[in-house]
């Protein structure tokens, strides 16, 4: 299908984009790489009156290292970040997860912030942001604020973002000493939406498991350092709490089983990884 008609603004600066967003509010959508929004437009699942293109804004192009974090502005494409030298050292979790995001052909265009804005419950980029306790930096004409990833995703494709707010950047905390990371996913084919995706972060005090594709948003849980059957029991309880649903691709039972199996696998791997780099 073809999109319904909309106006189009190619913003030359952040101010221009924010001003237009303030004026059009809920009638406008931001478009960056378009890899999540264009399917929605083509299928007419969304019919904005105005699209604001932020890809020509110079200030949003480059990732910026900050103390303890890598800040990724709205214009950074997934393929560009994946090719960033040192990504596997700074953000091993993201480096492991990004190859699972769509295909070469969609990563070439799609941005990280776009995936966060779209907030698909099975998407890898939001999952890693929640697993690493990153933040989303929002900006409107009037204010700037920073929202913790866990508070940002509020439901199936629903987020904390106000109608006049642009996701200016997301910030991923970089690798900490003595911390291990691991990612695993099961889908119908590589590049398809995940049936279940798991990301683990383990240090000397706790194990954190984030799960995508099961609840209506990426969901994380902190556990003390467990192993053996105590860990299996904790994972089983978590799997049930996520409230898995049934669809064309998997039964609820299969999803719960994937949480138990993949969850265990990534936690074990991350723990090994944490011991290696302590």
């Amino acid at each position: 299908m073809k999109p319904a008609p909309f106006g189009y603004l190619r913003a030359a600066s952040l101010d221009e984009a924010l001003e237009a967003l303030g004026r059009h509010g809920a009638e406008a959508r931001i478009v960056a790489g378009g890899q999540s929004l264009l399917p929605m437009l083509n299928m007419r699942l969304t019919k904005p009156a105005m699209l604001i293109d932020v890809m020509r804004i110079e200030a949003l192009r480059e990732p910026v290292p900050e103390r303890g974090a890598l800040v990724i502005p709205a214009g950074v494409r997934q393929a560009i970040l994946l090719d960033r030298p040192g990504l596997a050292d700074d953000l091993p979790l993201l480096a492991a997860a990004l190859p699972w995001v769509g295909h070469v052909q969609t990563r070439a265009r799609g941005t990280l912030c776009g995936s966060v804005a779209h907030a698909d419950p099975s998407a890898e980029i939001p999952l890693c942001l929640v697993a690493l306790e990153g933040e989303v930096r929002l900006r409107s004409r009037k204010r700037r604020r920073s929202v913790r990833a866990e508070d940002f995703f509020t439901g199936m494709m629903v987020t904390e973002r106000g109608d006049d707010e642009l996701i200016e950047a997301i910030a991923y905390p970089t690798r900490a000493a003595g911390t291990g990371y691991a990612f695993a996913e099961v889908g119908r084919r590589h590049g398809d939406f995940a049936i279940v995706a798991c990301a683990a972060v383990v240090d000397a005090r706790r194990m954190r498991l984030a799960v995508g594709g099961v609840a209506d948003r990426p969901t994380a849980r902190d556990f003390p350092l467990l192993d053996g059957s105590a860990l299996d029991d904790a994972l089983n309880a978590f799997a049930w709490e996520l409230g898995a649903g049934e669809d064309l691709h998997a039964t609820a039972r299969y999803r719960r089983d994937l949480v138990r199996q993949l969850g265990r696998r990534v936690l074990d791997q991350a723990r090994q990884d944490s011991l290696r780099c302590s």
């Binding site: 378009g34 890899q35 890809m55 393929a79 969609t106």
Partner: peptide, 29 residues
Amino acid sequence: CEHGVCGACTVAIDGVPARACLTLAVGVE
């Protein structure tokens, strides 16, 4: 498919392969 799944529409934009069906013509100025 016209929603990014099949790849039939793939072209190269600035040297990288991309879905033409997920690209607005006004965006390739």
